[in-house]
Amino acid sequence: MIANILIGGVIFGYAGFMLVRHIKKSSKGKCASCSLAKNCEGSCASTYSYNQENRI
């Protein structure tokens, strides 16, 4: 009985942690929350302008 409560607590705790993490990342925007934001050549405006300035 105690083991079931502990396992359930761990599962719900992890789910809550992942939900909060997802909400925080999604509120930053598409490129700001990406792990490859500094090296990405995607469609982000800041990355695009940076690449255009350093093209020479």
Rank of each mutant, 00 (worst) to 15 (best):
M1G: 14
N4W: 09
N4M: 09
I5L: 15
L6V: 12
L6A: 13
I7G: 02
G8I: 00
V10A: 15
V10S: 03
I11T: 09
G13C: 03
G13W: 02
G13E: 03
Y14Q: 04
A15M: 09
G16F: 12
G16L: 12
G16R: 11
G16E: 03
F17E: 10
F17T: 02
F17S: 09
F17A: 10
F17K: 06
M18D: 15
M18T: 14
L19Q: 09
L19P: 00
V20P: 00
V20Q: 01
R21L: 09
I23S: 06
I23D: 02
I23C: 02
K24H: 11
K24Y: 10
K24Q: 13
K25P: 00
S26P: 00
S26W: 12
S27C: 07
S27H: 07
K28T: 01
K28F: 06
G29E: 03
G29Q: 01
G29Y: 05
G29S: 10
G29V: 12
K30E: 07
K30A: 07
C31N: 03
C31Q: 03
S33C: 09
S33F: 04
S33A: 15
C34D: 02
C34Q: 04
C34I: 06
S35V: 07
S35K: 07
L36W: 05
L36F: 12
A37R: 12
K38F: 12
K38Q: 07
K38E: 11
N39G: 05
E41R: 03
E41G: 10
E41T: 03
G42T: 10
S43A: 09
S43Q: 05
C44W: 01
C44Y: 00
S46A: 11
S46V: 12
S46M: 08
Y48W: 02
Y48A: 10
Y48I: 08
S49N: 09
S49F: 13
S49T: 14
S49K: 13
Y50A: 08
Y50R: 15
Y50V: 02
N51Q: 13
N51K: 15
Q52T: 11
Q52E: 15
Q52I: 14
Q52D: 08
Q52H: 07
E53L: 11
E53T: 08
N54W: 14
N54G: 11
R55D: 12
I56E: 14
